[in-house]
Design a protein around this nucleic acid. Sequence first.
DNA 1: CTTAACTCTGTACTATGTACGAAGTACAGG
DNA 2: CCTGTACTTCGTACATAGTACAGAGTTAAG
Lengths: 258, 258
Amino acid sequence: MSGVSTEDNGGGDPRRAIELLWGVPGPPRRGPKPKLTTADVVRTAIALADADTIDAVTIRRVAEQLGVSPMSLYTYVPGRAELLDLMIDHAHGELPVSDPDLGWREALTAIAEAQWALFHRHPWLLQVTTSRSALGPHSFAKYEHELRAVEGIGLDDVEMDAAVALVTGLVRTTARSSLDAARLVRTSGLTDAQWWERAAPVLAGIPAAATEHYPLASRVGQAAGEAHNAAEDPAYTFRFGLARVLDGIEALVSERQQ
Amino acid sequence: MSGVSTEDNGGGDPRRAIELLWGVPGPPRRGPKPKLTTADVVRTAIALADADTIDAVTIRRVAEQLGVSPMSLYTYVPGRAELLDLMIDHAHGELPVSDPDLGWREALTAIAEAQWALFHRHPWLLQVTTSRSALGPHSFAKYEHELRAVEGIGLDDVEMDAAVALVTGLVRTTARSSLDAARLVRTSGLTDAQWWERAAPVLAGIPAAATEHYPLASRVGQAAGEAHNAAEDPAYTFRFGLARVLDGIEALVSERQQ
DNA sequence: CTTAACTCTGTACTATGTACGAAGTACAGG
DNA sequence: CCTGTACTTCGTACATAGTACAGAGTTAAG
């Protein structure tokens, strides 16, 4: 059992947000030399999130890691929400630039796989969403790079945007369910099999939950569960989805070419 | 600017979780008559979330709405995390059952549209994820219903699971970005246009952010933004994605039929 | 009637983000 | 060199969460 909720912060000042993301130095420094830089804070926060979850990123803990009082972090970052934004943009900087000579199919595949890997390296990225703040340099570059993959294949601008959103959305949802499952095993201390072992008899005792009422769900759910648990292929759903999506885009492209 | 984070609870006792979800009454009652039912709590929590966001669902507020002390809610629900699980399952109960005689394309379309509508009726569903607790009666029925749409069209069990995951994932990501944008406008008090108006001069002052460095992102981003803001079609990305995904599945299906 | 199970409540503890103000530091201008 | 100003750092404190705990009250079983 697990309820996972998303909280968000209100808006913020665009100017400050952008300056932070783009590393604008600001007016000349007068006071004492800062002990840290914004980048230090971001790196430490990412390390904490990598080692645990996004919840591990608290102002107090980040400060402690840095050997600084909690409140002094506010010198480098306006608040926790902005810190998360910075973390996202920083992580996007890890994405590789792929060969510009690839065909659109290969290019989108490379992008999807790079993002799949990124999500596995930084699972907290899946626990965080960015809305209007995709304005950091690396997020911007990421978007540019994605668009480059589908440029000149016969789609208009709005379609290009929708196409890359389709692919990146796919990676996000499939990576999320893959990692969610793994995390649940870690935090609950129960493997999927153990959990079901305990759950099964309880379910069996509930008339309304009889297998006959949900024949497909029972059969398919079990098959899918086994396939995913099998170390064989944790990425099955991702690859299946990607193949479908690319075929779907291909259908549109060939239609356009005629 | 906005950092949105997802926190989660640890595991939990499968027995209790399932009993709650399936409404098992438990052993005979001895003490005083309960003032409420679990369903009352769930309904109230959903009302609060509908009217605001998932953050509005606090134990204290739900209790206040019900005219009860905060702690007495723990009689009906083990904790906040489980309450969220119950809310999800309850909401899934609102999904309609579509005509069993539809072809798989129409059936998947109907399912996708119903879920799109559900997310717009209960935006908090997008702020919450369920992992292993998709074991409630309505979530189970939802899965069964989804599978029914793709049964007998030539896919094996694992493919069926992946296909419905693909469609439901699409709805989730597209609904999320659509609603995120809307919520941001609400909470920040700035429309997208206003925000960009303020952001533009700041960005312009940053050499690294020059439009020439991101030609596609600038052009396509603007085109897509305008298209989505136009009340014309907030669901464009959703429909585009759905069409591609269905075409992609169709390609696989016809391949199988030969 | 007694007892055990159950409900309900008040108090209190922990964790969190962050506002506020004081104290210390380093450079600009005189 | 001195002084004011901008800046960093920090301790304290407040508001908001979830929820542990213990006690008081309530009802049905024996």
